[in-house]
Amino acid sequence: TTYKLILNGKTLKGETTTEAVDAETAERVFKEYAKKNGVDGEWTYDDATKTFTSTE
């Protein structure tokens, strides 16, 4: 399943996707990605669109 991440950081904005077996796995991948890029925001998830959003 393809999951999408929308980053709305103070210094980094953008989108990326990952293939994962479930939302929990995708969330771990995306949170590590955000951390590596210095984004520490509030997380939301929309199951209908398989989209995570992190907003600082």
Rank of each mutant, 00 (worst) to 15 (best):
V21H: 12
Y3M: 01
W43C: 03
A20W: 02
A23N: 07
A20H: 02
Y33G: 00
V39N: 04
T53C: 06
E56C: 07
Y3W: 06
T17G: 03
W43A: 01
T18A: 08
G41C: 06
E32V: 07
N37D: 03
T53A: 05
S54T: 15
L12S: 09
A23W: 15
V29K: 07
T53N: 05
N8I: 14
T55K: 07
D22L: 04
K4W: 10
S54F: 15
L7A: 02
D40L: 11
T53E: 05
L7M: 10
E24H: 10
E56F: 07
E19P: 04
F30N: 00
R28P: 02
T18S: 05
T16C: 15
N8G: 04
T53Y: 13
A48R: 11
I6W: 04
K31F: 05
K13L: 08
T18Y: 14
K50G: 04
A26D: 01
K10Q: 12
T11Y: 15
V21I: 13
E15K: 06
E56R: 03
K35S: 10
T53I: 09
T17Q: 09
K4C: 07
D22M: 03
G9H: 14
R28E: 08
L12N: 08
T2N: 07
D22K: 03
E27W: 15
D47P: 14
I6H: 04
K10N: 12
G9R: 03
G9T: 09
E56N: 05
V39F: 15
K10V: 14
E56D: 07
E32G: 04
G38R: 05
T49E: 06
E27N: 05
T2P: 04
T53Q: 07
T11D: 12
T55R: 05
Y33R: 01
V39D: 03
K36M: 13
S54I: 15
N37V: 15
T17R: 07
A23P: 12
V39Q: 04
K31I: 08
N8H: 10
F30E: 00
T44D: 09
D40F: 15
W43K: 00
K4F: 12
T25C: 08
D40C: 13
V29D: 05
A26S: 01
E15Q: 10
E42N: 11
T11M: 10
T51H: 01
N8R: 10
V29G: 04
G41T: 05
R28L: 10
T1F: 13
D22H: 03
K31N: 04
L7N: 01
L12P: 04
K35I: 11
F30G: 00
N37G: 05
N8L: 13
T1K: 10
T55Q: 07
L12V: 14
K50C: 05
D40P: 04
V21S: 12
E24G: 08
E42L: 12
W43R: 00
Y45D: 00
F30Y: 01
W43P: 01
L5N: 01
T51L: 04
E32T: 06
R28M: 11
V39T: 04
A48P: 07
E42P: 04
T18G: 03
E19L: 14
T17M: 10
T25H: 13
V29C: 09
E24V: 12
E24S: 10
G9N: 05
G9W: 15
G41P: 05
E19Q: 14
T16S: 10
T51I: 05
E32I: 08
T55L: 07
T17A: 07
E15I: 13
K31G: 02
Y45S: 00
T2M: 12
E32A: 12
R28W: 08
F30P: 00
A34F: 03
V21D: 13
K10D: 08
K13P: 04
K31M: 09
L12I: 14
T1H: 13
T44K: 09
Y33A: 02
Y33T: 03
K4E: 03
K10G: 09
T1M: 11
G38Q: 07
T16V: 15
A23V: 14
A48D: 12
G38P: 00
V39W: 14
W43G: 00
Y33Q: 02
T11A: 11
A48N: 11
Y45R: 00
Y45H: 01
T49G: 04
K50V: 03
T1S: 11
D46K: 02
T18R: 04
T1N: 12
E56M: 07
G14H: 14
Y33W: 13
E19D: 11
T16M: 15
D47M: 09
T2I: 14
Y3Q: 02
T18C: 15
W43Q: 01
T51R: 02
K36C: 11
E24N: 09
T25P: 00
T49C: 05
E27Y: 15
A48S: 12
K50L: 07
T51Y: 01
E19I: 15
T16R: 10
F30A: 02
G9K: 03
L12H: 14
E15F: 14
Y3E: 02
T1L: 08
K36Y: 09
T25Y: 06
E27R: 10
T49M: 07
T1P: 06
D22S: 08
I6F: 06
D47N: 09
R28F: 08
L7V: 07
L5I: 03
G38K: 06
L7C: 06
L7H: 03
E24A: 13
E32W: 06
T18K: 04
E15A: 08
N37L: 14
E24I: 11
T18E: 04
G9V: 05
G41Q: 04
K50Q: 09
T17P: 01
L5K: 00
F30T: 01
L12M: 14
Y3A: 01
T1Y: 13
T16G: 04
K31S: 04
I6G: 01
G14A: 15
K13R: 12
F52E: 00
S54V: 15
T11C: 15
K50N: 07
K13Y: 13
T51V: 06
K35N: 09
A26C: 02
E24M: 12
F30R: 00
Y33I: 09
T11S: 11
E32Q: 08
A20K: 02
R28N: 08
S54A: 15
Y45I: 01
G41W: 15
Y45G: 00
Y3I: 02
T25M: 10
T11L: 12
A26K: 00
A23G: 04
T53R: 06
K4S: 05
T49A: 05
T53D: 02
E56T: 07
D40S: 10
R28I: 10
T18L: 14
Y45F: 07
V29T: 10
K31L: 08
E56L: 06
K50W: 04
N8V: 13
A34S: 06
K13F: 11
K50D: 01
K31H: 09
R28S: 09
T49H: 06
V39G: 03
A34L: 10
E56G: 05
D22T: 05
T2S: 09
N8W: 11
G41V: 05
K31V: 06
D46Q: 04
S54Q: 08
A34K: 01
V39M: 09
K50R: 11
T55H: 07
E19T: 14
T2E: 09
A48L: 12
E24T: 10
K10W: 13
A34G: 02
G9F: 15
E56I: 07
W43H: 01
E27V: 06
F52W: 06
L7D: 02
A48E: 12
K35W: 10
T44V: 10
K4T: 13
Y33E: 03
W43E: 01
T51N: 01
D47H: 11
K50H: 12
V21E: 12
D47V: 10
A23Q: 12
K36R: 13
R28Y: 07
R28A: 12
T25S: 13
D47E: 14
F52H: 01
V29Q: 08
E27C: 14
I6L: 06
A26W: 01
D46R: 02
D22Q: 02
G41A: 05
T55M: 07
I6R: 05
E15V: 13
T44I: 09
V39H: 10
T51S: 03
L7W: 12
